[in-house]
Design a protein around this nucleic acid. Structure first.
Lengths: 244, 244
DNA sequence: GCTGTCCATAGTGTTGAACAATTTTTATGT
DNA sequence: ACATAAAAATTGTTCAACACTATGGACAGC
């Protein structure tokens, strides 16, 4: 009956590993509040596809399911809405955001707008480069293990590392949001092997070029990559939605 | 006693005009929830300087002051924290964000990164151009009326219009956040006439060049403008903080 | 005087129940 | 079928309570 209980129960019943994202912070803010924990959990459920775009998130149902009070859950909703994962409709509740073609187009426009210059102006020995290479290797590991969700994460990590090259925390934060939305799109599509497979090797080429000091070339490859990926995703998206 | 009461009381005691920002939406979402109203109100208090950076926002005090429940207020805190206006510390509460020099530098890096290309690739007859000119005229009106807060708003609106030229809602949303933080910085500085005065005319030159079809020239002027503004603000900031 | 421990206090984190306002569903009449 | 009114479900908001954490002394030891 007492409050704070979930600090214990919540941890017990929690299935998520978590701890990723927010690359910059290490020892800071180790204390997580319940709301943040729940937010991470819902985020994961959306990304993993257990929560499908467009579906309505009932306050009562979800609060019982996650064992938190409605008030706490509403705080979580407020956070995730600002992150762009959920959509609010007054007096009707929250829904999982449903990406449209317009969404995809805008996301890729932003990606080209941000990633390409960041890569072009990058210093070859910037710490972000290491992260890029790590991400590529992680992606290959996941590909072998046929962990396609993992491949998606690694791909996002790769491109987040590119944005890190710009040395701007705000830019990185913005990109993290965009990446979240992109994952929503990924979840919408099927056939993840076909979706991610071809792009791992291109990531490898890009980081290799950058390490060799050829930032301009890397940026060019990246732009081509993004244009291809956009067409690719748009096609897959059209195929999925037309089935309805 | 009863709930929903504030829907009435809140409106009565509300002093803010509001309605700006979010250029794209017109008839949509006319229904505002209490939390959103309160959020707008606190936002305004932060921007106008009534709530100084670094100050602690007590849940109990503020909830009594604004006549809303603690729970609703906490929802608001969650939103404003995501917007970057407030900072959360677990078990210690929320504080108004305190911009540092690093903040200012990052903000201006982002501004150059986003605004300049947006302007350079702009079409001279893009609707955003009209907004730019409107903003300049609004700024001059406010200057004559010595409404320096208004000048600040108009200046922000001008540059938000530049970002609109990129036709990307996500970019515009991101810029709105950056602009909010920038206003926090403005509030920190004194002597607003000296702060905004010189820049109005430069804005005018930029939009004039763009209207004349000289996007490249406008972009160059903008970059110079932003570099100057950064130095300017950093100087003013150093002056203010050293006084402590 | 300075430093570290223990406690009272204030403030945040979270809950459950209650009720008003709104939306959605169901039942009903034509 | 179709509009309409009543009923049910859901969101919006409040309140009071209590666990947990942080803060500011009081007090003892060095």
């Amino acid at each position: 009956m007492a409050a704070r209980k979930p600090q214990v129960e919540g941890a017990k019943s929690s299935v998520l590993t978590d701890g990723r994202m927010q690359a910059g912070s290490r020892a800071t803010e180790q204390v997580q509040t319940l709301a943040e924990t729940v937010a991470a959990r819902i985020r994961e459920q959306v990304i993993s596809g257990r929560l499908t775009p467009g579906s309505h998130l009932s306050e009562q149902t979800l609060s019982e399911e996650l064992q938190v009070s409605r008030n706490t859950l509403r705080e979580v909703f407020r956070m995730l809405t600002k992150e762009g994962l959920l959509r609010y409709e007054a007096n009707r509740g929250v829904f999982v955001s449903t990406p449209s073609m317009t969404t995809i187009i805008d996301i890729y426009r932003v990606r080209r707008f941000i990633e390409c210059p960041a890569l072009a102006h990058a210093h070859p020995r910037h710490p972000g480069v290491t992260r890029m290479r790590d991400a590529v290797e992680e992606a290959r590991r996941c590909r072998e293990a046929k962990d396609w969700l993992g491949v998606g994460s690694a791909d996002i990590a790769f491109h987040a590392a590119i944005v890190e090259l710009s040395d701007s925390p705000r830019m990185a934060g913005f990109y993290a949001q965009i990446a979240l939305e992109l994952r929503l799109v990924f979840g919408l599509l099927k056939d993840p092997e076909f979706l991610h497979g071809p792009f791992i090797d291109q990531n490898l080429e890009i980081v290799t070029a950058l390490e060799a000091g050829n930032a301009a070339g890397a940026a060019e490859m990246l732009e081509a990559y993004l244009l291809r990926a956009e067409r690719f995703i748009l096609g897959a998206y059209a195929r999925v939605t037309s089935e309805t």
